[in-house]
């Protein structure tokens, strides 16, 4: 989207705006969510360095939680590898989608730099990019993403560190309300996505996964994602024909 006042902004201003967007709410919620992961990790037998390196290297909450629970059950390395990759498979789609939104190709970055920046991609930054897309022209979205994702990454790691030592400071009554913030925040963020097909996908995918889970376990995520996404695309393309509308 272009032709807005933001056309006059330069990348460093956009990076700063993104940082402030992150500081408005999402970074604190993520900080507490990661502190929640630290608590689970500590209970599962992780030491401090392992907990921090898991957050730094995996940087995807469902995979981290799957890892911690398998670790506490003394699962094999192969089981850990497959469970974490299944839980974090969405990264693959999110990276493609984010690269498309940011027109990553046009920035001509070498492969290692593209992989480096995508290491900071997690669901909060990705969903926010969808919102930023409605405000900023696409050539500035890489700068937006850098400012936003780095800010929440720092807060997430801070949360991991603090959570390992301070998990007893917040009473559970408060902690459970704060941990509730991140999933709701991201669901609401996705429901404000510009494309109708994406909003429909959120509804179908979200409705299907709890029903699939009793039958197929963790595979429910993959199944609900593929079926929900395909149905939404199919409906949008062949029945509602949303792509023929000018305004999404």
């Amino acid at each position: 989207m272009s032709g807005t006042i933001h056309d006059t902004l330069n990348p460093s201003q956009v990076r700063q705006n993104a940082m402030f967007d992150a500081l408005r709410a999402p970074c604190y919620a993520l900080c507490v969510t990661m502190a929640g992961f630290s608590t689970i990790a500590r209970e599962s037998g992780f030491d401090f360095m392992m907990t921090v390196f898991t957050s730094l290297g995996v940087w995807g909450m469902p995979g981290q939680v799957a890892f911690a629970s398998l670790y506490s059950a003394s699962a094999s390395l192969i089981a850990i590898f497959f469970a974490v990759s299944l839980a974090n498979m969405r990264m693959f789609l999110m990276v493609i989608s984010a690269a498309d939104m940011m027109q990553l190709k046009s920035h001509n970055l070498p492969l290692w730099k593209r992989v480096f920046w995508m290491q900071f991609l997690a669901v909060t930054a990705w969903a926010n990019l969808g919102l930023a897309q409605q405000k900023y022209p696409s050539h500035l979205l890489l700068a937006y993403y850098q400012g936003f994702s780095l800010t929440i990454f720092i807060f997430g790691i801070l949360g991991t560190i603090l959570g390992f030592f301070l998990s007893d400071i917040l009473p559970p009554e408060v902690l459970r309300v704060v941990i509730f913030v991140t999933p709701i925040y991201i669901l609401l963020l996705m429901m404000s996505a510009g494309q109708k097909a994406n909003r429909l996908a959120v509804l179908i995918g979200g409705a299907l996964s709890p029903f699939f889970f009793p039958f197929v376990g963790e595979w429910a995520i993959l199944l609900a994602g593929i079926i929900g996404g395909s149905l939404a695309s199919f409906y949008g393309h062949y029945i509602a024909k949303w792509h023929l509308e000018n305004v999404p």
Partner: peptide, 29 residues
Amino acid sequence: PVMVWVNTMAYAMVSAVLLLILVRPIGVL
């Protein structure tokens, strides 16, 4: 259309993860 499909699957999959967290949480939630 492939990019549209990838996007809708990403949205559906993230939503699927979040609903599982909400319906079957672990930890303090």
